[in-house]
Amino acid sequence: MKHLTTPLREKDIVNLQIGEEVLISGVIYTARDMAHKRMYEAILKGEELPLNLSGQILYYTGPSPSPPDRVIGSAGPTTSNRMDDYSELLLAQGLKGMLGKGNRAEDVVKAIIKYQAIYLATIGGAGAYLAKRIIASSIIAYPELGTEAIRRLEVEDFPAVVAIDVRGNNVYKDF
C-alpha cells in the first residue's frame, strides 16, 4: 500500500496507477458545493482565496457535527460530479488532488492531465470509519456555511483508491 503525504509534489503522484490503493497522511481541506461556488467566484473576481491551494487535496465532504468528546463526526465522501464545473479553475490555482466518490466529467479528466493532478476515491457510506482517521479538524473559511464550510483536517492513513491518474486513465467503467 502506497503512502501519500500532503502537500503533494509532482513526483509523489506521477507514478500512481488507477486502481492502486493509497493511505493519505497530513493536512487536507474539505470543500463541497457551496465552498466550490464561493472559491470559483472569488477567483473570477480576482479576490484572494482563503487558502493556498498549491499542492493541496480538497476532500468533498460535509461532515456530521462533532460531538463534545470527538475531533469530528462521521465524514465520508459526497458525490464528486457536483463539483465538476468548478474543478478546472481550482486545478489552475495549483490544486493537486481531489478526494471524493464517483466518476468525473470529461472536462475534469482533461484538466487533470493538463495540470498533472490526481483524483482519488474513498469509501462512500463509511463515514464513521473514516472519521477515525481524522486526528484534528478546524474551520478555516466560510463558517456561515455550516457543514459546507472549509475545514482543515489532519489525517493519518486515510484510505483511498486512485480513480483518475495524471495521464487521464479512469478506473470507472464506461458503458
Partner: peptide
Amino acid sequence: TARNIIEIILQNAHIAESEGMAICQD
C-alpha cells in the same frame, strides 16, 4: 480492492453501532 472496501464497510457498521456515530454523515 472490492474485498478491502467490504471489510471497511463492515467495520464502519461496528464503529457506528458501538460508538453511536452516524453510519454515514449523510
